[in-house]
């Protein structure tokens, strides 16, 4: 936590050195992503619903996934650019400091410009939640869990995918395919996808465990209350795998150099 504070302040200072760029970028990000949501909204307004899911429910799903993604982009930008850290050899300089390597890599830069993403997800969420009707009254108490799980899930997936750079060097496309594409896919209910892709999104990059499954129960589309455990299960399984791969990657790095 101390490390987090130190590096957080460093990044904030670095970025406020270019104040104008900063402001333009936050607005730009906000608008850019908002356009994405508008596209979904347009389609839904025309068709009223997608396989039984209303626009409002999809807005909630969208806000859950985007909120976690936005927070990850703010505090985990270093993981997003992990390949440059490896390719430039700057990863060495992290290893000579008495602090967590993962923490340092993640907080290379805190990208405050991506706050636009978080803001936008929050707005869509507030709108969706103000109109949604849950089948169970305790759903409200459960909601914070989903937003939190989304942050954790996004971070885990980014660490897992960033680790591939230890083997491949360049991994930009792996990250785009494995994280960006799946996160966009997770903005919609699972039923619109082929069975195979549903399995991928449940067991490999388990984004559906934080959106689709819990909401299936919360909105009354399913009676299985066990679906509420899905986020926990997803994280409980992904976390050790991710940390294992990361450690293996560091081990590989320290035995080969680059």
């Amino acid at each position: 936590m101390r490390l987090f504070k130190i590096l957080f302040i460093a990044s904030l200072k670095s970025q406020t050195q270019y104040a104008f760029d900063f402001v333009v970028n936050v607005i730009g990000n906000f608008l850019g992503v908002f356009a994405d949501f508008l596209i979904i909204a347009m389609i839904l307004i025309r068709f009223q619903n997608i396989q039984g899911w209303t626009l409002i429910e999809i807005a909630v799903i969208y806000s859950i996934i985007e909120f976690g993604f936005g927070v990850y982009r703010v505090i985990g930008d270093g993981l997003n650019n992990f390949e440059t850290l490896i390719l430039s050899g700057r990863f060495d300089t992290l290893l000579i400091r008495p602090a967590s390597v993962l923490g340092q890599a993640m907080l290379q830069t805190v990208d405050f410009k991506k706050i636009g993403l978080v803001l936008q997800a929050t707005l869509v969420g507030v709108w969706g939640l103000s109109q949604i009707e849950f089948a169970h009254s305790y759903a409200w108490a459960y909601l914070p869990t989903l937003y939190l799980a989304s942050i954790v899930m996004n971070l885990l997936i980014s660490i897992l995918l960033a680790s591939t750079a230890f083997w491949t060097g360049k991994n930009e496309d792996i990250v785009i395919l494995g994280h960006y594409a799946t996160r966009t896919a997770a903005q919609y209910p699972a039923t619109i996808y082929h069975k195979f892709f549903q399995s991928v999104m449940t067991f490999v990059i388990p984004f559906f465990t934080i959106t689709y499954y819990p909401l299936l129960f919360l909105t009354g589309k399913s009676q299985h209350s066990l679906y509420l455990l899905a986020p926990w299960l997803g994280i409980a399984i992904l976390a050790p795998i991710t940390m294992g791969v990361w450690k293996l990657g560091i081990k590989r790095y320290s035995s080969t150099g680059t």
Binding site: I6, L7, A10, K13, S14, T93, P98, A99
Partner: peptide, 20 residues
């Protein structure tokens, strides 16, 4: 390779390292 924060004044790098 530099170990310093490129965009920050030197003193800030020192303070950050002091913290680390």
């Amino acid at each position: 390779k530099t170990q310093m924060w490129w965009d920050l004044p030197v003193i800030d790098t020192y303070r950050l390292l002091g913290g680390i």
